[in-house]
Design a protein around this nucleic acid. Structure first.
Lengths: 337, 337
DNA sequence: AATTAGCACTTAGGACCATGGAGTGCCAGG
DNA sequence: CCTGGCACTCCATGGTCCTAAGTGCTAATT
């Protein structure tokens, strides 16, 4: 149905439209690309592409514009991810290299990605559930309160205060702390519930109320997925974009972290690149945007995702290259910590 | 120079222009307000106001529009802060009431303020330097590392890991922890440097290297003003605003937290309301916006600031009312924690 | 059968123009 | 000092026309 030349025409249309932002006509195509055929032939191919739904005309007697389906085909079969220039790669290193703590790594990453792509960048904090326990600390705060601090190997620190206890003794806290660390250090967070199950039974009866309270807060902090936190950057780039939807809708969608988290969650889990184009996005306000995302992690352990949001009319090869490179680098940085 | 009626005319112009977003003419004024005089008289007043620089014409034969100077006079002398409706006040209570930790309080506050004003809201995290020490915890992490956790009475928790130590012993850490808590609990953070000064001398010589490392990190964490952290909300409302500057400039300025922090810092410190109008803002990108801010705190202790950013053509009385109310409520919530 | 050249047709967008309405400034009279 | 009247200005609106770009179709060519 679609021979090689028709695919070449589609590729050319996408590339031209992305760079000029104007419907592209047969003559312009023949001029700017060496397709080896005349405009008339290109026109014939175009009607075929249009019948199949890959391109569309804004109105009769205008050039053609790729549809979501057209971009999809382009991304899947007609383009190759563009590697970064060496200058860009150096920029990544110098930019991310100086970061000290997790917050700063994430903050720098999001700014970097926004700058590289000139679009809106999204970075999700590393998931707690995929990391392992490095240390658990308990701190008595007076007679009724204890603070629990959970430190993971990805640099996350979660703390909670446990309130409403009775007669907390230093010694009981010490015993519990030692037991917890013996049982949990090095364990995957997902295994913590199991590992913790029969601990209270091993304690002297007087300590059990305290242990139960601490454990319930500990488990809760794992479940509550505080890890589901994201950071946005480069929203100023939205001003230069032209969506068919209103800017307001897009901004609203981006501000709803829940929406973004759901979308990221729907996307490919491994370290692969995933692209969601236009109406493929389940959220209304993002119908006219595309999202390019990739997972990052330490070694084979996926931790979370990063992504870029822009108009469907987007430089897919370039954006995909930037996202992939930053995701890899982020993994390395975290591994080196 | 400006009699009462001229001021009334200016007030009417501001009010009409804010609500209609169109240059307001003498006839419309006479109709919509009961100024008791004819359009011709109003016109005469208008030329006076224009000569003084309070209003301007976009072009001959158009109505008048307030200048920055006009808004300034309006805010200073012609308007009264508008108290919130009881429905709005209830909304604040229910909205902020359910928050549990500091992050959630701040997050909810910023969304609330954005919703009340339909503009962009800014909330600054409570300053560390104005709160006092509730507890200092030290946690040994293996032989070379110690984690320091600083808890304040405003609910902030700062933690650092101190690296590159040698032969950390449990006992030395215990000694140092006890000493630190004895010396610091209840102290204002601003007094911590003083209180800490001659501590190392009181320790056995073997502990001093550890103490020095911990203290330097502790002091550093006070100086680094991690407290200078802000959260934005309601940026979607920008889409509906019309600046004379480009949307991009405004977004860029807002994304630069440093810029916002500086601006907030320049504004009145006490719990008073402060308004910066148009060119009064030192930052280029915000020349065509106004910022309404207020400090919040516990009792008389100012902690930080909140604010709203919108077009100079803004409902000042309403915005000021909302900002003031939210700031007060926020103080109460924090005090009740 | 596929490609090409030629041609008539369509349409958005820009230039141009006319018109109406809102607003002004000014003057003379109350 | 205020007001009604009036001539004037200017923008916004809408209509018309025209052009440039692009199309689809047909007939000729390879």
């Amino acid at each position: 149905m679609l021979d090689d030349r028709k695919l070449a025409v589609l590729r050319a249309i996408v590339e031209d439209y992305v760079s000029t932002n104007e419907p592209v006509g047969s003559k312009a195509l023949a001029d700017r690309h060496t397709l080896g055929v005349s405009p008339a032939t290109i026109r014939n191919d175009m009607v075929a592409l249009e019948e199949e739904g890959y391109i569309a005309q804004p109105h009769t007697s205008a050039g053609r514009v790729p549809t979501d389906k057209g971009y999809r085909l382009f991304v899947d079969r007609l383009s190759t991810v563009k590697p970064l220039s060496s200058a860009e790669r150096r920029a990544i290193e110098t930019f991310l290299g100086g970061a000290v703590d997790l917050d700063e790594i994430v903050g720098r990453t999001v700014r970097l990605l926004a700058q590289l792509t000139r679009q809106v960048a999204v970075v999700q904090y590393p998931s707690l559930t995929r990391s392992s326990v490095q240390h658990v600390e308990l701190v008595p705060l007076g007679q009724q309160r204890v603070m629990m601090v959970l430190i993971t190997d990805t640099g996350r620190v979660e703390q909670r205060v446990i309130d409403g206890l009775e007669d907390v003794s230093e010694e009981a806290v010490d015993r519990l702390r030692q037991m917890l660390n013996r049982a949990l250090v090095g364990k995957w967070l997902t295994n913590v519930p199991n590992a913790v199950e029969d601990l209270p039974a091993q304690l002297p009866p007087d300590d059990r109320a305290l242990a139960a309270a601490v454990l319930s807060v500990l488990l809760e902090s794992l479940v509550e997925r505080h890890d589901e936190k994201i950071v946005l950057g480069g929203t100023a780039n939205l001003a230069a974009m032209d969506f068919s939807a209103s800017l307001r809708e897009v901004l609203e969608a981006l501000e709803e972290n829940v929406v973004l988290l759901r979308l990221l969650g729907e996307m490919g889990d491994r370290s692969m690149l995933t692209v969601r184009i236009g109406a493929e996005n389940s959220h209304e306000g993002l119908r006219s945007t595309s999202i390019v995302s990739a997972g990052y992690g330490i070694g084979d352990q996926p931790l979370a995702k990063i992504g870029v949001v822009g108009p469907t009319r987007m430089d897919y090869p370039g954006t995909m290259g930037a996202v992939r490179a930053v995701a890899r680098y982020l993994g390395q940085i975290l591994a080196g910590q």
